[in-house]
Simulated scan of single mutants.
Amino acid sequence: MKSLLLILVLCISAGAFAQDVRVTHGVPAVVEKNFKKKFPTAKEVDWARKGDRMEADFDVSRVDHKALYDQKGKLLAWKCDVRTGQLPAPVLKTIRSQYKGYKVDDAEKVTRDKMELYQVELDGNPDVSLVFDKDGKVVEDADWW
């Protein structure tokens, strides 16, 4: 009985300290207001807490999006899926010249601080995940956050 109680307490404690917690309530009103203003046609919105930030996962016109907000309602970054043909020509040129034999598996456009970045997953041997600027240059140590 004590071991069952201990397991239950550990499970509850582990859940309390998880970094990616699904949020059903508790999205600050200013965050929700600014989200609805920026993405008025968003559908199927799911919120998650990412540390002290809030992340919305949603669809706009059947395209997957994510938006990251601070607690004061400031939009820090947002990204959406893009098709290979929607990648800037310099990005495609870099992929063709520097990653011959690779195929674009997944691509996302990231907007952060008025800067456009493109996260691209390439299928090949080995698979590669890269971030490009709009000029086709690989951006080191960049990620969505």
Rank of each mutant, 00 (worst) to 15 (best):
D20G: 08
L92C: 11
V27P: 00
M1L: 07
Y99S: 10
V45N: 00
K38C: 01
E121F: 07
W47Y: 06
Y118F: 14
K33P: 03
M54E: 03
G15Q: 03
V63I: 11
V91E: 02
R49G: 07
K37E: 15
K100V: 14
A29D: 03
T84E: 15
L75T: 01
V138Q: 11
V30I: 15
I7P: 00
N125K: 15
D133L: 06
K134M: 07
L6P: 00
V31A: 00
V27E: 00
L117D: 00
G85T: 13
Y69N: 02
A67L: 00
R53M: 06
L10M: 15
V30M: 08
K137N: 15
V30G: 03
E55R: 04
V128S: 02
V128F: 04
S3R: 10
L130F: 08
M115A: 10
A29L: 02
A107L: 09
E44I: 04
M115P: 01
R96G: 05
L4P: 00
R62F: 06
T24L: 11
L4E: 14
K134A: 14
V21F: 01
D81M: 12
E44Y: 11
V138K: 13
A89K: 15
M115I: 14
H65A: 03
A14Q: 11
E121V: 08
I7D: 02
V104L: 06
C11R: 03
K93A: 13
E108A: 09
S3W: 09
K134N: 07
K37I: 11
W145A: 13
K74Q: 04
R112D: 04
A67Q: 01
M54P: 00
Q86G: 10
Q98A: 15
V23K: 09
T84A: 15
D135R: 13
K37W: 03
I7H: 03
V139P: 08
V110Q: 01
K72S: 14
R62S: 12
N125A: 10
